[in-house]
Computed example of a mutant assay.
Amino acid sequence: MKKFLLGVGLGYVLGTKAGRGRYEQIVRTYRKLVDHPMVQGAAGVARAKVSEKFGRR
């Protein structure tokens, strides 16, 4: 969660300095990355391993 908030904050700061168009480009790129099936699969595997290690289900 902290990394997500950091990414959002960084995108906001970079976007405001570079202008609205650049900000929108950063947001689109971030969303494409997060929504990519390989990233979703890796996130699922990571969640399962963390759950397994810490016993949360």
Score class of each variant (00 low, 15 high):
Arg22His: 09
Leu10Gln: 07
Thr16Gly: 13
Val34Arg: 07
Ala46Gln: 01
Lys3Tyr: 15
Gly55Glu: 01
Lys32Gly: 08
Arg31Trp: 10
Lys3Ser: 14
Ala42Pro: 00
Ser51Trp: 05
Glu52Ile: 13
Arg22Thr: 03
Tyr12Glu: 05
Ile26Gly: 00
Asp35Tyr: 10
Gly41His: 07
Val45Glu: 05
Gly55Thr: 01
Gln25Cys: 06
Gly55Leu: 14
Gly44Ser: 01
Lys2Ile: 13
Lys3His: 15
Leu33Asn: 08
Val8Asp: 03
Lys53Trp: 13
Lys17His: 11
Met1His: 14
Arg20Cys: 09
Glu52Thr: 07
Ile26Asn: 00
Tyr30Pro: 02
Gly9Cys: 12
Thr29Glu: 04
Val13Arg: 08
Val27Gln: 01
Phe4Asp: 12
Val27Ile: 14
Ser51His: 13
Met1Arg: 14
Leu6Phe: 10
Ala18Ser: 13
Tyr23Phe: 11
Leu10Asn: 02
Ser51Asp: 02
Val45Asn: 04
Gly11Lys: 00
Met1Val: 13
Ala42His: 03
Ala43Asp: 08
Arg20Leu: 11
Gly55Trp: 05
Ala43Gly: 11
Glu52Leu: 06
Arg28Tyr: 15
His36Leu: 10
Tyr23Asp: 03
Val27Gly: 03
Lys2Tyr: 15
Lys49Ser: 06
Leu33Thr: 03
Glu52Asp: 10
Lys3Met: 11
Val34Leu: 12
Ala43Cys: 11
Lys17Thr: 12
Arg31Thr: 03
Ser51Gln: 10
Phe4Gly: 13
Gly7Thr: 01
Pro37His: 02
Gly21Gln: 14
Arg47Gly: 15
Gly11Trp: 00
Lys32Ile: 06
Val8Ile: 12
Lys53Cys: 15
Asp35Ala: 11
Arg56Pro: 05
Thr16Asn: 12
Ala43Glu: 07
Glu24Phe: 04
Leu6Trp: 14
Arg47Thr: 12
Thr16Ser: 12
Gly21Pro: 02
Gly11Arg: 00
Pro37Ala: 08
Met38Ala: 10
Pro37Met: 06
Ala46Pro: 01
Val13Asn: 02
Leu10Asp: 06
Lys32Asn: 11
Thr29Cys: 01
Ile26Glu: 00
Arg28His: 04
Leu6Ala: 12
Val39Pro: 03
Lys53Ala: 14
Phe4Tyr: 14
Pro37Ile: 03
Ala42Val: 05
Val39Arg: 12
Val39Gly: 09
Phe4Gln: 14
Thr29Gly: 07
Asp35Thr: 03
Gly11Val: 00
Ser51Glu: 10
Gly15Phe: 00
His36Asp: 08
Gly11Cys: 04
Tyr12Arg: 05
Arg56Met: 13
Gly19Pro: 00
Tyr23Leu: 14
Ala42Glu: 09
Ala48Val: 11
Thr16Glu: 04
Val13His: 09
Leu14His: 02
Tyr30Lys: 03
Val8His: 10
Ile26Cys: 05
Gly11Tyr: 00
Gly7Ala: 08
Leu14Pro: 09
Ala18Tyr: 06
Tyr23Ala: 06
Val27Lys: 02
Leu14Glu: 04
Ala18Trp: 03
Ser51Lys: 09
Gly11Ile: 00
Arg28Ala: 06
Val13Glu: 09
Phe54Ala: 14
Val34Tyr: 08
Lys49Val: 06
Thr29Arg: 10
Pro37Gly: 04
Leu10Ile: 13
Gly15Tyr: 00
